[in-house]
Simulated scan of single mutants.
Amino acid sequence: MPDLYLGLISGTSADGIDAALVAFDDAAPRDAATRSAPLQARLLFGRTYPWDPALRRQLVALGQQDAALTLDDLGELDTRIAEAFANAAGRALADSGTDRVQVAAIGSHGQTLRHRPLGRHGDGRWPYTVQLGDPSLIAERSGIRTVADFRRRDVAAGGHGAPLLPALHAALLHAPGEDRAVLNLGGIGNLTLLPGDGGPVRGFDTGPANGLMDAWCLRHTGEAFDRAGALAASGRVDAALLARLRAEPWFTLPPPKSTGRDQFHLGWVDAALRGGETPADVQATLLALSATTIADALRALQPATARLVACGGGVHNPVLMRALADALPGCVVESSAAHGLDPDHVEAMGFAWLARQTLLGLPGNLPSVTGARGPRVLGGVYPA
């Protein structure tokens, strides 16, 4: 079987479809929790393919708390997202000069519309998570076996279904003797804690990273994100607003925990505003919210962290990266690029790896992270 996999994901911000073509070189694939030897994963090609602007606006709008879809709308959107993913796969193969027969499988995350691992009312009844992008259609269009729907098996086993990448972070970035953390700065922030003494890997969502800032920037400037943090840098942090936002009870919940745009959305921000705030000041405050809640979580759960390795789109926001460094004195804050991992494609690499785990019959989750009852083989396989 070729050991070349294509990972596809559109994250919480829905800023594009990330495609990563990954070669795995380790001769002895291991259980997700094993860190006895480093995983050899090489990114051969990575690129982000943009959404159709109208479809992206719909996806962002559907992430809000009060969004609703008819069954017909839901079915059509599932197909449209799958078509976009299949097109991204085809473009990635063409742009990288790769024949589809060389690829063992596509690992498709899809687009999350709702993530309710504790149920709609937070009481643990009827938990669910919804990712759209019909994998049958992706397999049909691409001619490549597709592995998808990774989160629901973990939720079925009592877990949060997220985050799913700490096992890969551990395999790629664990360093004996140094407490490290890996931070994914997507729409939602999530941390992987890698203790240097070989203790259990932990991971959890921290709350907003780029998602609120992106949505606020789009509302007030028409731009999909705050390029280089310019809007935030032009404003001042509103301490009273920051305190109201930080008072959200979710931030004090212990892990395992996960969240999404359906909880942290612009309606949530609007409810904390008192009127008269400038767009730049709110953006500066949202950036401070991301940095301080991430730092709070890291200090609370792994206070001796010596190095924070960041990946995801937020790495390109120097204002956010400086805010994180300021909030974590004594901790090195750096991009995953310093470790040979392209920060824009670590997450897509993760879904290539998860597809491989599934085909090898190996677990992809870490119960110490998600809270599931045990390790589980994740996802379903859709033949070409």
Score class of each variant (00 low, 15 high):
Pro279Val: 13
Gly276Arg: 10
Thr285Gln: 03
Leu287Trp: 02
Ala300Cys: 11
Ala288Gln: 07
Arg274His: 12
Ala272Met: 14
Ala288Gly: 09
Gln302Gly: 10
Ala280Pro: 05
Ala310His: 06
Ala306Met: 06
Leu298Phe: 05
Ala295Ser: 03
Leu298Asn: 12
Thr292Asp: 11
Leu301Glu: 11
Arg307Tyr: 08
Ala297Ile: 04
Arg307Leu: 09
Leu289Phe: 03
Ala271Leu: 07
Gly275Glu: 11
Ala291Tyr: 03
Asp281Lys: 00
Ala300Lys: 15
Ala280Gln: 08
His265Ala: 10
Arg274Ser: 14
Ala280Lys: 09
Leu287Tyr: 00
Thr285Ile: 07
Leu286Lys: 02
Pro303Leu: 04
Gln302Val: 09
Gly275Ile: 12
Leu298Ser: 10
Thr292Tyr: 10
Ala288Leu: 06
Cys311Pro: 09
Thr292Lys: 12
Gly275Phe: 12
Val309Met: 04
Ala288Ser: 09
Pro279Thr: 13
Gln283Thr: 14
Leu286Asn: 03
Gly267Tyr: 05
Val269Glu: 00
Gln302Thr: 10
Ala288Glu: 07
Pro303Gly: 06
Thr305Tyr: 04
Glu277Gly: 04
Ala306Arg: 11
Ala272Ile: 13
Cys311Gln: 10
Gly275Arg: 12
Ala291Thr: 06
Pro303Ala: 14
Ala304Thr: 15
Arg299Leu: 06
Asp281Ser: 01
Gln302Arg: 12
Ala271Gly: 04
Asp281Met: 02
Arg274Ile: 12
Ala271Thr: 09
Ala288Phe: 03
Ala280Val: 07
Ala284Cys: 01
Gln283Ser: 14
Glu277Met: 06
Gln283Asn: 15
Glu277Leu: 05
Ala304Ile: 15
